[in-house]
Nucleic acid binder design. Structure first.
Lengths: 343, 343
DNA sequence: TTGTAGGCGTTATCAA
DNA sequence: TTGATAACGCCTACAA
């Protein structure tokens, strides 16, 4: 069964293709009667316009793509929801594009930029390590959202929105200190990490320092290596290892909520409890942390605000046709849950 | 800055477009030296072939699309991962397409079928209510995966893979009965639900019946109305309501793991505990249920197997060019966690 | 081994 | 209000 095209419809209706085109696109200057007739034939024949042809022909379209690496990260869910809402309100088309682990997101962006004549791009995600040069090749406006970049030189060149990973990490570890904890372990990213893993580690160190506690490498426990390093399972495994090591500590800072949840289970399985035996803090503010028992002390990232600001900047660039290189940093919110207590 | 096209590259290199095309597509019959030269120019000029034009020209492509409604459902994550893996092994291109709540997934499928010259489609998701007629309009092979359809007449016409929602629901409620529970509440979908919500309810009823327990409408608690009706929050709210109602029960069947987690928190907040005061069972087998405290008694859906079987059928249809209308039903696995106990 | 030209399905321009 | 026709960027006979 051959694909039915605009020509077929035109032929059936006994009109020219342009008339059919007008009918499809709600073009004014078409006789309502013919339009209706055409639409009916279209419906009867299950005609669907070919988007490839449309995109090819159109010189521009009102669409914005959000690229996410690791789409199953539950931290992104509410952000994506927010992006979609705002983009639709602006009457733009929203395209969510997953980027798989071994793909380069910039290449993907360049591809769909041409393919869909994008107006703008949002890069969403925690790991991102691309050269300034490569990023410069992108000709559409884009914003880096929630991307932890340690290379500040590169960062300053582009529009970005994120939470202050280092500062917030400092805040929560400082809070642990204020509770009287002196031996605070960290479930951290592998050392080579140059992104949020590193930033949050820096915050941890800074907080210790401020509180006159010496950094102790024996209290650093590296999460598993791999794309799921910030997962529940990863936290579980690493904490088991930590407990076996007999390292002495009274509090644990997990650099991610999911990691904290895995840690909690591991502790429980060894016959101990949170917060009785260990105070436990996470980072991100996942919805789950409110419902978990005990609810988790964490840093809540203001996801809606981040999403809003990301798009405000992006639309600013689109509408004023000028590049912005603001770096907006949001504060997080320290949520005090049931997982921490004074010593 | 004008978009650079294949013509520009050809001009710069002083060759014809077809030569450039050959270079891009690893076509044999091209001088390695010219090829290299062309590739270099391509790189220098940031040329990226336009996919719309490619798709338009190509009469077919080896790509399979997976359409998901409500992509942030964590139940889908491992399935999607599995789909991706298998599709890539088959050297096909994998396209993950989100369908938003007010979009009709069949329309979306028809659109991208034309746009990308799809070879096959997987519909993934729990809610699906489309007429047989509409589904018949799709000309590419497709499989309904993990879709609870109560309309068996319609279902039989198409290829589908799913867990036996009703049977597994029966199994877990029967298990609760076997523990001695006689007053078993259910956190259920709104009554109008015609999908998994209804199926799981049927299983619940059947299990009660088998165990000589009369169905009691006062023990049915409807989840909130909306797209997030199977969320943690929904379970939390509904359970709060239930506890206020003073309904008497010793066990609770939540039709979803997320709902169960919300329920657990609500119970805890009212000063009670799982399983001491209520035995609690979920459904789905999310990774989280293993780590939750207490770990959740649930039905684990064999997601990998479901994904494998889905694609086996799909590729069968693609390769043999004939429609299959098998309905494969997988058993789930009753996972006995810490959230249930004998009375 | 390479180049020319036609066409994929649309939309937009121009005449009619 | 309509219809022919030229692009859009690419691939692929076919010819050289």
């Amino acid at each position: 069964m051959k694909n039915v095209t605009i020509k077929d419809i035109a032929k059936i209706c006994g009109v020219g293709v342009s008339t059919v085109s007008r009918a499809i696109n709600d073009n004014p200057g078409i006789n309502p009667a013919t339009k209706e007739r055409i639409l009916k034939v279209i419906d009867e024949n299950n005609y669907v316009p070919n988007n490839s042809a449309r995109n090819l022909k159109r010189s521009e379209s009102e669409t914005i793509a959000v690229l996410v690496k690791g789409i199953n990260n539950s931290f992104f869910s509410p952000m994506i929801t927010e992006f979609e809402k705002i983009i639709q309100e602006k009457k733009y088309t929203f395209v969510l594009q997953r980027v798989d682990q071994n793909q380069n997101e910039i290449d993907v962006a360049m591809e769909i930029e041409k393919e869909k004549r994008l107006k703008g791009v949002v890069f969403l995600g925690g790991y991102f390590s691309h050269s300034k040069e490569k990023l410069c090749k992108l000709t559409v406006p884009f914003v880096l959202s929630t991307i932890g970049m340690t290379d500040l030189g590169a960062k300053k060149e582009f529009a970005s929105v994120a939470v202050d990973d280092e500062g917030e990490s400092f805040k929560i570890v400082d809070y642990l200190c204020s509770l009287g904890h002196k031996k605070i372990a960290i479930l951290a990213a592998p050392e080579y990490d140059e992104s949020i893993g590193k930033l949050r580690m820096e915050g941890y160190k800074a907080a210790l320092k401020k509180n006159g506690i010496e950094f102790d490498n024996n209290l650093v426990f590296e999460l598993i290596d791999g794309n799921d390093r910030y997962s529940i399972k990863s936290g579980y495994i690493t904490t088991k290892k930590m407990l076996k090591s007999k390292a002495e500590c009274t509090a644990i800072f997990a650099i991610t909520d999911a990691v904290a949840i895995g840690a909690c289970r591991a502790i429980w399985e060894e016959g101990m409890k949170v917060p009785e035996n260990f105070s436990l803090a996470g980072f991100d503010g996942l919805e789950l942390t409110r419902y978990y028992i005990p609810s988790l002390t964490t840093i809540r990232q203001p996801v809606e605000e981040i999403a809003k600001e990301t798009l405000r900047m992006l639309f600013g660039m689109i509408e004023n046709k000028e590049k912005i290189n603001e770096n907006v940093v949001f504060p997080g919110k320290l949520i005090i849950g049931e997982s921490t207590r004074g010593i």
